[in-house]
């Protein structure tokens, strides 16, 4: 496969990353080398194989639906870039 600069730019945009022209050039080269490493996989026949999503065969454990911890919003908001009245502030989205 081969990824061109336009495709890499589109991927970066999907990943919420912006790349400079220089970064776009170097990443196009690097990503093509990385995806070349993956081509070996296309030769592998996995028709009857079930995907392995978890390394240990266990069921997902669920927590009981009850409060076990105190409200730590103050401590967690103390490290936020911008907050007001228990809200996280971002640039205005709706005028």
């Amino acid at each position: 496969m081969s990824l061109n600069k336009d495709k890499v730019s589109e991927i970066a945009s999907l990943a919420m990353l912006s790349l400079t022209d220089e970064q776009l050039k170097s990443n196009t080269k690097e990503l093509n080398k990385i995806f070349d490493l993956f081509t070996e996989l296309s030769q592998l026949n996995v028709d009857d194989v079930s995907p392995m999503t978890h390394p240990i065969n266990i069921n997902q454990r669920l927590l009981e639906d009850k409060v076990v911890d105190k409200d730590k919003s103050k401590e967690f908001q103390a490290i936020a870039p911008k907050t007001k009245d228990r809200y996280y502030l971002v640039p205005k989205v709706i005028e």
Binding site: M16, L17, N27, L31, I34
Partner: peptide, 20 residues
């Protein structure tokens, strides 16, 4: 905010793996 914070905050290899 999203684009610049992430692009300034992450290094090259991390960006690469995110894109892969």
């Amino acid at each position: 905010l999203y684009l610049r914070s992430r692009s300034e905050g992450f290094g090259d290899e991390v960006k690469r793996r995110i894109m892969v």
